[in-house]
């Protein structure tokens, strides 16, 4: 059993690296990522789990980082948008750029991570599958059409990539 007071030193596993940071027990994972670790690619759109802009992957699943306390995610594997591209853009990122799926860009990191988790499990989705998967990521600019097209395009890029390996 562990007890934590106002300020605590915690260990977080983010993008395959281990970080030791001091957090306020009230800090959410989102606060810790942005304010302590400078990982500002994760966006704060509502801070209430309603918009999906703060989506990160926890053990491979998309979650709202604003609705989890930082002290509550110790021992979990977190992936943020900064951890997605390796030497070059990930095929999902490439597809977003080329299909015009990015306008203001504020929903984009969360949208891409949701798409990543989704395509990890579903390699040949339909339009409706994609819409179900991203239904927790609000976008106000695009009307979603080009985002859905980008994710479908990314799926086919990933399928092609797999075949070559």
């Amino acid at each position: 059993m562990n007890r934590y007071g106002l300020k605590e030193k915690i260990e977080l596993r983010i993008n395959h690296a281990t970080h030791h940071i001091e957090v306020d027990v009230r800090d959410t994972l989102l606060d810790a990522l942005r304010d302590q670790l400078g990982l500002t690619g994760t966006k704060r759109g509502c801070d209430m789990g309603e918009c999906g802009a703060c989506t990160v992957l926890m053990d491979g699943k998309p979650i709202n980082s604003c609705m989890l306390l930082a002290v509550d995610v110790m021992g979990r594997n977190i992936m943020t948008i900064e951890g997605l591209a390796q030497d070059e853009l990930h095929p999902i990122q490439q597809a977003f750029v080329e299909n015009g799926a990015v306008q203001c860009g504020f929903c984009t990191p969360g949208m891409i991570l949701t798409a990543k988790a989704f395509l990890d499990h579903c390699s040949n989705p339909t339009d409706d599958d994609v819409r179900q998967a991203i239904s927790g990521n609000l976008c106000r600019c695009t009307g979603y059409r080009k985002i859905v097209e980008a994710i479908l395009d990314a799926a086919s890029r990933l399928r092609r990539g797999k075949r070559h390996v």
């Binding site: 789990g49 699943k61 709202n64 609705m67 949701t114 179900q132 998967a133 927790g136 990521n137």
Partner: peptide, 12 residues
């Protein structure tokens, strides 16, 4: 469950 909240919320 599919009609509950969002995929992200359902994961937490």
């Amino acid at each position: 469950l599919q009609r509950t909240a969002s995929p992200q919320i359902r994961n937490i």
